[in-house]
């Protein structure tokens, strides 16, 4: 149940991994679409927090091409619906998330990513 809204907020938290630790790269993904009600107000307020290039790249790697390259200034309802679909309705059920910086793999099984670190990877 990793939605892209969460994925877009998630960076690698391994010790001393500060470069290229965002976004985590999906691989061997099993995708499930679950429809939900759109809340455009929330999306509008949430937009400043989004990392747009990361979101577009991730969405494309998962096979969704509906988002434009640049974050639009003015949003049409269609675009908002597309954004809602990408952020809230695409759930990654199985697969791996890999950090590009340190190469740590966070496996996702049954919709739950395992974020546990080994002892030597924990930051102080």
């Amino acid at each position: 149940m990793v939605r892209l809204i969460t994925h877009n907020m998630l960076a690698c938290h391994v010790k001393n991994c500060t470069k290229d630790n965002f976004p985590l790269v999906f691989s061997e993904v099993e995708l499930v679409i679950r429809e939900s009600e759109a809340n455009y107000d929330f999306l509008r307020r949430f937009m400043p927090k989004l990392d747009w290039p990361a979101l577009v790249d991730t969405a494309r790697s998962l096979g969704d091409e509906t988002l434009p390259d640049d974050q639009p200034e003015e949003w049409t309802d269609e675009q908002l619906q597309a954004l809602h679909h990408v952020l809230m309705e695409m759930h990654v059920e199985e697969g791996n998330m890999t950090c590009r910086g340190c190469g740590h793999v966070y496996p996702i099984s049954n919709g739950i990513p395992n974020m546990l670190l080994a002892e030597h990877e924990v930051g102080r």
């Binding site: 998630l10 546990l116 924990v122």
Partner: peptide
């Protein structure tokens, strides 16, 4: 494990 810290932006 929350004792390991969060990785959120």
């Amino acid at each position: 494990d929350i004792g390991q810290g969060f990785g959120f932006r």
